[in-house]
Nucleic acid binder design. Structure first.
Lengths: 374, 374
DNA sequence: TTGTATGCGTTATCAC
DNA sequence: GTGATAACGCATACAA
């Protein structure tokens, strides 16, 4: 009986002690030793769909669990050239205003076997600094909700790094993007407001470098021009609450009167504008002034606001971004694709959306606008 | 002239083409070849504080930049046993309500040379599933803003994985924690409200498994009992906006009248409660009813609300968590430490904080409470 | 199905 | 200061 099979448990405990003494990690080789098989057999047991006999599998798994063995992803990625990590580059701003974006992305990517390595930017211009890290960490791909320049994109191509831009576009290059049609959203909003007879518009824009807010503004201005309405008074904003109130005052000052409608580059500014109008200036909204925003952030549908706004279909967009990226990573689809989603109009109650039942006099301008869009 | 030194540039371009043809990554060996040095020399050039001559350094860096070489973090971590990645485990809930937490953590950890690998939980109970991944990815440490059981903690210890709990505690084990003193916050709030003469309290609790909301409730109840005030009517909530309104109605129904004050487990519920009181039930706040919350989320200080609440010092707490974790990782500090921060009282305008200038009759109960806390 | 041998790209150790 | 060489922990081609 010299060849009596060593009890797995005893060997495992002993071996575990040895490993602890040597202060090293548990490796597949250790498991192999305890299970009495080769290291490659262990490796195969942890690869789904590999050919292993039932008995070997059982022995290996038992040993692995006794030793608390977990495969080392770093070593694996070294040889498979897959880290199963995806970098998400997002500005603090974006994360603050759309927390659900990160949650959805994380959820969707996890469902596809990828983990999120987070890169946050204090400013949009910090991209260069984080990109260096992105290359180091050998991520399988990148989802960027930040402004990348043509040069950045070129580097992605040079390094064959799959990339999906989220709510950013770049005309110069063919690149995968997932966006909401902010231009269309801006136009849609103006159409609805104009149809209700609004003529004098004010616009509180987002920060200079916010492409999203810029597109919205551009869409609104375009549509206003098409309808033959007077050009809006546009004032700058920082996309925050304060900018809403400040913007409202600036518009009134510049216009010399309260406008018919104010379009804000984001809901938070719209809420700031609304609060300022109602609680500071005593302006009746929507009686005397209509206020509308974009995004449909959570507070926008609270009773105190019930904001007229346009919703980006974030969950769908996040899913699309994850799909697109994984298609490139897993199936090497190199054709650039753009997935564009439409914003959904939320009526709310801060904008008058039907024409005033004109008593006697209608301004000819108002009527013209009404006709123009019909 | 057979030994003429090959021009670096030409060699680099050639070599780059070779690498591209072989469809492999650029390695330190490639750089060494182009720079005309050994692979170890290249490695040293990328290790801060290593001993390399100026000229070698320059040659290597030039070659590296020509080849677009970036060290492979996976290979590095394999041998250094440092991934420079930190796992952040956070519930979707928490991320939705405190987006600044993740931003701050990311910021602070980046400043310390660590990257955030994100693990989001749909439910607090999903911890088990993500922990398996955490082990795989060889992170250097974990910051967990999720409920871990005693068993989980045991596994962290077994694997020698540095851990910092964020806003969660565990009495059974000595573990690093960063928390806000929610019990104290609950007590503080009751003290202030009681001092103003409030006697009949309602409490809208958070979800069953929210330790944070539970602590707050416990603190409030404790203090009420100490002050000899009647026990509050406690109703459950989901920490969301809807729960605020629903909770208010439930309390009124259960109490048979409008309470003097309602304490909500979170600001969002407080805002829901406030909106319901004012816009649905027409209750004057703070005239007839005081409403208070916790967290000082952004909307809480908007003009429409100006909520009475208590702020958690998130930036400080995030910094503390990063500090604590890095101390364990880098300096192997094994002594468990608890860093507890106090909440800051924000007066706001939704709770009456001074006694009613009693005309003639003061309820003896109210007076007793007043005396008790002085 | 299983084991042997090799390589992934780096850092660390040691001579020189 | 520099270069050879051995790890690190795993996956895979290949032979058995």
């Amino acid at each position: 009986m010299t060849k009596s099979k060593p009890t797995v448990e005893i060997s495992a405990t002993e071996h575990k002690a040895t490993i602890a003494r040597e202060a090293r990690r548990v490796t597949s080789y250790d498991v192999a030793l305890v299970a009495g098989v080769s290291q490659s057999a262990v490796s195969r047991c942890f690869k789904p769909g590999a050919s292993v006999s039932k008995s070997t599998y059982a022995r290996v798994m038992k040993a692995a669990s006794l030793l608390d063995y977990i495969p080392n992803a770093a070593a694996r990625s070294l040889i498979t050239r897959r880290s199963n990590m995806v970098a998400v580059i997002i500005t603090n701003q974006a994360n603050l205003y759309y927390p659900e974006l990160l949650a959805e992305l994380s959820q969707q990517l996890t469902a596809r076997g990828k983990r999120v390595l987070l890169f946050t930017l204090a400013r949009e211009t910090d991209v260069d600094r984080v990109l260096a890290d992105v290359w180091q960490f050998q991520v399988d791909g990148v989802i960027a909700a930040a402004r990348l320049t043509d040069l950045h994109i070129a580097e992605f191509e040079r390094r064959h790094m799959p990339l999906v831009l989220f709510n950013r576009t770049l005309r110069e290059r063919a690149v995968n993007t997932v966006t909401c049609d902010h231009l269309e959203a801006g136009r849609m909003l103006v159409s609805r407001l104009a149809a209700a007879g609004h003529r004098r518009f004010g616009i509180i824009a987002g920060t200079e470098d916010s492409t999203v807010a810029n597109e919205r503004r551009r869409g609104a201005c375009e549509r206003l021009a098409e309808l033959g309405l007077p050009p809006p008074v546009v004032v700058p904003g920082q996309s925050d609450y304060r900018s809403g109130g400040a913007g409202l005052k600036a518009i009134i000052e510049q216009m010399g009167r309260v406008p018919d409608a104010i379009i804000c580059g984001s809901d938070v500014m719209a809420i700031g504008c609304l609060d300022c109008a109602r609680h500071e200036l005593g302006i009746d909204v929507p009686g005397r002034l209509s206020v509308a925003g974009f995004d449909a952030v959570e507070p926008s549908n609270w009773l105190s606001y019930n904001l007229t706004t346009l919703r980006q279909p974030m969950p769908k967009m996040a899913t699309a971004a994850a799909d697109l990226l994984c298609a490139v990573i897993d199936r090497h689809e190199s054709q650039a694709e753009r997935r564009v989603f439409s914003a959904q109009f939320i009526e709310g109650a801060t904008a008058r959306l039907t024409p005033v039942p004109t008593p006697v006099v209608a301004t000819s301008g108002g009527m013209r606008a009404l006709v123009a869009i019909m």
